[in-house]
Nucleic acid binder design. Structure first.
Lengths: 123, 123
DNA sequence: GCTTGACCTGGAGTCCGCTCCAGGTGGCAT
DNA sequence: ATGCCACCTGGAGCGGACTCCAGGTCAAGC
């Protein structure tokens, strides 16, 4: 009996990750996504790990990390376990930036709410 | 005795608002900033109100409002007090989006921290 | 009276992150 | 077996938000 490792078609990955197909191809082209496997016809077949990695990318992207830095993270990840301390450092720095973003947004939100209150007061 | 209304040179506004001079000119060109006054030599002289308005723009920009929508807000503001309900509506919608951004960032931050913990655990 | 530097203008260029296109292949449902 | 649809590739194009440039003008301090 053969094992059938779960494998995802492009359409499934789009569905699963929320990235467009064009974005997936783009990420592969620039090296954010390691060379994805292909079937006989040359069509992409993504693995479970690819999905996981794309989840990480989505998280980094959605917290405003520029592609250049995601690329650095990707390279560290490919380079092997000895880069884990570097990866921790990178993520910790990013975490601090995210924290800063949140604080900043909270501050701005106060400003906006004040403005709304002011507008209400002059009606 | 004459009043000297406080007026700001471009350099002062850059200092005060954190926008670059190019950005200020750009904002004026596209109509985000109403025609700024000039001295005899044609140089910009910003008023207190300009500074206040720029504060609002900075807030909207830093919370991710696209320029097209800031422009809409600018037009409402210019149109007079009868647009205040519309302005409130616009800001409330934006406030909700900002709230969403914050929630999203907080979620992502959890993911990043988990990842960091995981990396720590395998060291 | 001359240099310096803060300004001015219109318009071109840049950067980022995709997004779209043309032209082509392969495989599956009817 | 045929039609259709999901894919493929390389490369061009796009939208947003600036940013830079060339060439020119004034104003003031030395």
């Amino acid at each position: 009996m053969l094992f059938r490792v779960s494998v995802y078609t492009p359409a499934e990955v789009v569905e699963e990750t929320g990235f467009t197909l064009d974005t997936l191809r783009y990420y592969e082209k620039i090296g954010l996504l390691e060379r994805v496997e292909r079937n006989a016809a040359g069509q992409r077949r993504f693995t479970e790990q690819d999905i996981g990695w794309l989840g990480m990318l989505r998280c980094l992207r959605d917290t405003g990390m520029p592609i250049a830095q995601m690329l650095r993270f990707a390279e560290l990840t490919r380079a092997g376990d000895h880069t884990i301390p570097d990866r921790i450092k990178l993520l910790e720095e990013h975490d601090r930036r995210v924290e800063g973003q949140i604080d900043n947004l909270q501050e701005r939100k106060r400003y906006i709410r004040n403005k709304i209150s002011y507008y209400r007061s002059v009606l």
